[in-house]
Amino acid sequence: MGFGDELIHDRELFSCLSCYACSNLCPSDVDYPVFTQKVRNLASGEGEHGDCAHSGTLLSIMRLTSRSDIKQKRLDWLDGLHTSEKSEVLYFAGCAPYFEPVFEDIEVSPVNIARNSIKVLNALGIEPMVLPNERCCGHDLLWTGDVETFKKLAQFNAQMIKESGAKKIVFSCPEGYRTFKLDYPNYVDLGCDVQHVSELLAEKIGQNGVKFKEIKKKVTYQDPCRLGRHLGIYEPPREIIKAIPGIELVEMEHSGDESICCGTSVWTNCSSYSKQIREERLLEARATGADMLITACPKCQIHFKCAMVDKGAEKGPDIKMEVMDLVNLVANAMET
């Protein structure tokens, strides 16, 4: 592509959130995020990776799962849930078990989302498979330019899934979902369907005798970029929320395809701008008068909660509010 050094070594290259807000507006339909992804791949070859948050731990873990002989102990959280060794449905837990200890201090529990996903599937009469040696989906590596490792991970996962005999993979994480749905086909053949848990739920509401108890709350919904603009899934989460009696859903000033990102992607270049985006988004959410902000992506939750616990936040505007994952909300409503 013949880029000059400036572009490749420009640190702003890693600031793009790949949120698709630009392409959404672009009259010529330029796919700017994918362009960024490709340039980052070139930059990665030159040793550029952007400034990585959390001391790079998370990306290191992801790269480590690309070792062929890695032995993981990643299923302890399944204790007491119904899963099966052979099932048509496979639940892809993704990074939840690895994120868990990192975000303990800001009280985000990705494993809880995974547990509740299984509970919800169980309530729908599904006892899914969960694979003990699942690899990272590779989303963050692909978007930081490390295509080599991404390919390895995709191959491992594809082979494992083929061997498992699954017909459908269900995700609670929009990033894993996007990666399997839009990126894997460029490199591997999965030979099965993929679905976000919200889509599955939306289909099944009313069937199987799923009943929700009343939750008296006013809530608003944050469209995760991957689920929304990347994959066009806006309605299923809203249908589910509305199906819970007592809940009033109110929209923020920017919602749907105009929704605003949570401010950081792929753990990279998380800057004071990121924080500003979060603050503004949380102010929008609070302006709706909602008691709670629902999201469908664990990373959105991590980023919003992080902004709220900042010591500096006390000096800025009041942005505190309850944040909850969609799956957790559904699981709460199902509890008898």
């Binding site: 948050a53 800057s271 500096g312």
Partner: peptide, 10 residues
């Protein structure tokens, strides 16, 4: 790294 710092105070 001042660009990344969000002044969270941790």
């Amino acid at each position: 790294n001042e660009v990344l710092c969000q002044a969270c105070g941790r």
